[in-house]
Amino acid sequence: MTRGSEGVWTLLTGHGHVLVAIAKNPDSRVSDLSREAGLTERTTLGIINDLESAGYISRHRTGRRTTYTVHADCGFRHSSQDGLVIGPFLEVLAQTRTSETDPAPGSEE
């Protein structure tokens, strides 16, 4: 078995995981987002700051709660995805299945 072939890495970065978690539930608390992304709250907060600075999200305060808006028309930051926007990517990854028996997106029954 080659190094790195088992669960020591994920396809998405921490930034990707946090962005998908925000897209799934824009009213989530940082603690909820960090749990879903598998990161510490401190790391998650830093990523949220990065995503906001880059224009991928906006934060809106209502009382003590923060709500996020994802800007789906933003492009990817890597040259190999030049011209592509994040919206369709997030639509696929942020889908929530309604039951355990629902087929996965793109699969045939």
Rank of each mutant, 00 (worst) to 15 (best):
L51Y: 02
R59W: 06
R35I: 08
K24Y: 02
T62I: 14
Y68D: 03
T67I: 12
H17N: 10
G106M: 07
D32I: 04
D50C: 04
V20S: 04
K24C: 07
T10V: 05
R65Y: 08
Q95E: 14
D73S: 15
R77W: 09
G63M: 06
L33H: 04
T67M: 05
G46C: 02
I47N: 04
A21R: 03
T10I: 02
Q81S: 12
L19H: 01
H60Q: 10
E6M: 10
G75M: 09
D102T: 13
A23T: 08
N25F: 04
V30F: 03
D32E: 15
S99I: 11
E36V: 09
P103G: 03
W9T: 15
T67R: 15
S107H: 12
V85Q: 08
E109I: 05
D102L: 13
G63P: 06
A54F: 14
G75P: 00
I22K: 00
H15C: 01
S5I: 09
L84G: 03
G75S: 14
I57N: 01
L39W: 08
P88R: 09
G4K: 11
E100A: 15
L93M: 13
D102M: 10
R35A: 15
L39P: 01
E91I: 03
R61L: 10
S79H: 13
I57G: 01
R97S: 10
Y68A: 02
N25I: 00
G14P: 05
T96F: 02
S31Q: 12
D73C: 01
R59A: 09
G38F: 08
D82Q: 14
T69S: 15
P88K: 08
V8C: 11
Q95G: 07
E6T: 12
V18I: 11
P88F: 05
V92M: 10
N49D: 14
T44Q: 10
T101P: 04
R77V: 14
Q81R: 10
G7D: 11
R77I: 13
V8Q: 12
L51Q: 00
T62W: 03
T101I: 12
A37P: 05
A37R: 00
T96E: 15
H17R: 15
I86M: 00
T2Q: 08
M1G: 13
H15P: 01
L19I: 09
V85M: 04
S79D: 14
S28N: 08
G7M: 13
V18L: 04
Y68K: 04
R42G: 09
E91T: 14
V8E: 12
G38R: 11
G46Y: 01
T2V: 11
A21M: 09
L39N: 04
G87R: 08
E36N: 13
R61K: 13
P26C: 07
P26N: 10
S28D: 12
E91M: 06
K24R: 15
T40H: 13
I22C: 00
C74D: 00
S99L: 07
F76N: 05
I48R: 06
S34H: 04
A94I: 06
S34M: 06
G55Y: 00
Y56E: 02
V70T: 04
R65D: 13
E6P: 02
L12T: 13
D50E: 14
S28L: 05
S28V: 08
R35C: 05
S80I: 14
G83L: 07
I22A: 01
